[in-house]
Amino acid sequence: MDYSAAIGSDNNLTYVDSEQRGAPRYTSLIRSAKLVCGQGEFLCVVRDVSSTGISIRAFHALPTDPTLALELQNGESYEIVQVRANGTEGSYRFKTPVVVERLVHETWNYPKRQLRLNIAIPLKLSSLTQSAEAVTLNISQQGARVECDAVFAIDQILKVEGEGFNDTRAKVRWRRDCNYGLVFENTFSLREFAIMAAAVQCPMMLDRG
């Protein structure tokens, strides 16, 4: 997926301290990741990276927590501290210098998958014969793991209603006790997913973006 199309074609950000300016930098590293902090989990796009810091762009205002974790698609996490923020753009310093090649060329111990956000969103799941309340345990652009007391069949098509879910339908891919794996018929774009996640966790970020 071309993430640059979703975030625009602005020039890459620059770091603000001399240590970062002196570190080897990989520019135009357009890669999705998530910021994890006390305010929640939020999608971003990593644009520049060096051994000492990164620049990112989000789809809304950045979290105000000064210390966060940057989590990649392969699950690796790096503690970062905000250096500069300007609207949807920000520069961050790694608490501990990183091996750039490891970050750029992500290693995978498991099959690749899209970023999952561990957020709880109340939902209503409906089939032709019943409706039931549910809550997400995690969610990605393509699907979600939900908890629901009702019984639905594998491959059953459900209507999904909830904040950020407009006319969404999903297929039941797997079931384990009260947990279900749903695959959306129409996937979220990265921008749609980011905005929805911010709206349910910290709506003020949309006002400040």
Rank of each mutant, 00 (worst) to 15 (best):
S9W: 15
S9Y: 15
T14I: 14
Y15E: 13
D17V: 04
R21P: 00
G22A: 15
P24Q: 15
P24G: 06
Y26K: 06
R31L: 12
K34F: 01
C37Q: 00
C37N: 03
L43N: 02
V46N: 03
R47M: 09
R47S: 02
S51P: 01
I56P: 00
H60R: 03
P63N: 05
T64H: 09
T64C: 02
D65L: 03
E71S: 04
N74Q: 09
E76H: 08
Q82A: 13
Q82C: 12
V83H: 08
V83K: 12
R84E: 12
N86M: 10
G87A: 06
G90L: 06
R93L: 09
F94C: 02
F94G: 02
T96Y: 10
P97C: 05
V98T: 00
V99A: 12
V100C: 08
V100T: 15
E101L: 10
R102K: 14
H105D: 09
W108N: 01
W108K: 04
Y110S: 11
P111V: 03
Q114W: 07
R116S: 08
I121Q: 02
L123H: 06
S127P: 02
L128P: 04
A132N: 05
V135H: 06
L137K: 11
L137M: 11
L137T: 10
N138D: 15
I139W: 07
V146N: 04
E147F: 09
V151N: 10
F152Y: 14
A153C: 08
I154G: 07
D155P: 06
I157A: 08
V160A: 03
E163K: 15
N166K: 13
N166L: 13
D167E: 13
T168P: 01
R169D: 08
A170S: 12
W174A: 13
W174S: 11
Y180C: 07
L190P: 03
I195M: 11
I195Y: 03
M196H: 04
M196F: 10
A198I: 07
M204N: 10
L206D: 06
D207N: 08
D207R: 12
R208W: 07
G209D: 04
